[in-house]
Design a protein around this nucleic acid. Structure first.
Length: 492
RNA sequence: CGGGGUGUAGCGCAGUCCGGUUAGCGCACCUGGUUUGGGACCAGGGGGUCGCAGGUUCGAAUCCUGCCUCCCCGACCA
């Protein structure tokens, strides 16, 4: 645990990498692009997972588990889908190792070659739809609303802790419906679930919108996305929900008999969020002292630190008092930890809990015992106040709400400051180059314009906002009639 | 896939150019003691196939050849 975290304005990327390590969230494994998620990082993910899982169940979904390995032939059944993922698939070709003849270790046994190679899932549409084919015969079997929590693997060229690792954890919902309307409604519903979660728990404001043709999920008719803005001015796609039409039903021949006994292909959706959310959480709120976590997701919302002295009887009292406070807070549903370590000095501990983003810190020293007080520090504002012992619960409870709201507001303000509406391409280029952030502009709706802007400025269309205003002038690039007013940004 | 870097104790690094006792340093760890209201200190201690393979040499972490790893930046990417 070092004390020198690179400053954000010096090298944001370096800051991020160091922070993930120093806050003890994750570390690199020996395999390129894959990471070990450490207990503290995993605790945050578990909170994300638990809350979302509850929301999925409240909206009528059930969990299941489908296999990691997918027959290679499955992948090619949906043309756009294979096109989108083929380049980044890990392939299992053998099922046995043997001792090397020169004693140097183990080697692949060439006689154990698989008849049909297996793909490590980059996503599970294909294997799930192969099952759905068997499960769906009648309109009575619909809708089928299934989610799975799983790991997937995409052999990305360049990786980044949490933001893009070769293996990552996620959830993927896969639903089947009798009608187009119902499937679209499902995709939209989950889009809302994601946006609400991001806003209310992660404290990150999201732009809700749909993807342009070129950014759409491989095999989807419509991709709903939530887009967040990070502190370095780059956008991060935080969650997507896809209306898949009948593409997968047709590819996997999944038909049902409707009420009239007529055979129809089912309508599908899929939706997912991943450990990438961790990256969003880190880059949206944290500062040069370390992680800043919203109380709603922090593994511990407070830590109680007794200031141990050389006098053992005093220490016993301090620890006893800390335990009493912890008990009182737990009774109010606060997640709290007592730091019993008597070796490290207070200053070290303060810095460490700040690095790890604990929303509040409660310090109990001999003076507090005498005065009947504690010192409460909040992470987001980095201030400290003395609080009467009797007021601890109400103070901490109020702080949970305040901190949650404050960091959300801060993120909203940041986004507002870093959103620029432009009318001319000169303004556009200047905004992207000098300021970054979201750039709002009219777009003629063509892929050609999108491509040109991308190769010119590296900015892409993040989304066509659902609640944005209509096009109100010519396309910022081509000068032709604009179809939409969209959000551009450089993205992760 | 291009560019850059890297591999020596759990972690971070020095040593390599210019080969030579027992391979160092900081942090961490263990023992004892003093400390504890913003990153403590003293004393003692343990821990190493120097990325891998081959070569040169009386002698290789150091020189030569080949290979590999991982990281960072970029291109790529729902």
């Amino acid at each position: 645990m070092g004390k020198n975290l690179t400053k954000r304005n010096v090298d944001f990327s370096k800051w991020y990498n160091e922070l993930v390590i120093k806050a003890d969230l994750a570390e690199h494994s020996d395999v390129r692009g894959s990471m070990v998620i450490k207990p503290y990082g995993f605790a945050i993910w578990e909170n994300i997972k638990d809350i979302l899982d509850k929301k999925f169940k409240e909206t009528g979904h059930v969990n299941a588990y489908f296999p990691l390995l997918i027959p290679k032939s499955y992948l090619s059944k949906e043309a756009d889908h294979v096109e989108g993922f083929a380049k980044e698939c890990a392939v299992v070709t053998h099922y046995r190792l043997k001792n090397a003849e020169d004693g140097s270790g183990v080697v692949v046994d060439p006689t154990a070659k698989l008849e049909e190679e297996l793909i490590i899932r980059p996503t599970s549409e294909t294997i799930i739809w192969a099952s759905y084919r068997k499960w769906i015969q009648s309109y009575r079997d619909l809708p089928l609303l299934i989610n799975q929590w799983a790991n997937v693997m995409r052999w990305e060229m360049r990786t980044r802790l949490f933001i893009r690792t070769s293996e990552f954890l996620w959830q993927e919902g896969h639903t089947a419906h009798a009608t187009r309307t119902e499937a679209v409604a499902e995709a939209e519903q989950m889009h809302d679930v994601y946006a609400d979660f991001a806003q209310n728990y992660m404290a990150i404001p999201m732009i809700k919108g749909v993807k342009s043709d070129s950014e759409r999920f491989a095999g989807a008719l419509e991709t709903y996305t939530i887009e967040a803005l990070m502190q370095d001015g780059k956008a991060l796609q935080a969650g997507t929900s896809h209306f898949l039409g009948q593409n997968f039903a047709k590819a996997f021949d999944v038909k049902f008999a409707d009420k009239e006994g007529k055979e129809e292909f089912v309508w599908a959706t899929s939706w997912g969020v991943s450990t990438r959310l961790m990256g969003a959480l880190i880059m949206a709120h944290s500062d040069d002292e370390g992680l800043v976590l919203p109380p709603a997701l922090a593994p511990f919302q407070s830590v109680i630190i007794p200031l141990f002295q050389k006098d053992e009887t005093v220490n016993e009292k301090l620890l006893a008092e800390a335990e009493v406070i912890a008990k009182r807070l737990r009774a109010k549903g606060i997640r709290v930890q007592v730091d019993k370590d008597d070796q490290k000095r207070p200053g070290f501990k303060f810095a460490e809990y700040e690095m790890k983003g604990y929303p509040t810190r409660i310090v109990v020293g001999p003076r507090d015992l005498e005065n009947g007080t504690v010192e409460i520090a909040r992470r987001d504002l980095k201030n400290k106040t003395s609080v009467n012992n009797a007021d601890i619960e109400t103070t901490i409870e109020a702080l949970m709400t305040e901190i949650q709201e404050n960091i959300f507001k801060k993120a909203v303000d940041f986004r507002t400051e870093n959103t620029t509406e432009v009318k001319t391409y000169d303004e556009f280029k200047k905004a992207i180059k000098n300021k970054g952030g979201f750039v709002v502009a009219n777009w003629d709706g063509t892929e050609q314009t999108e491509d040109r802007i991308k190769s010119d400025t590296k900015a892409t269309i993040r989304c066509i906002p659902l609640e944005g205003s209509k096009a109100d002038g010519p396309c910022v690039y081509s000068g032709n009639e604009a179809k939409y007013k969209v959000i551009f940004a450089k993205a992760y």
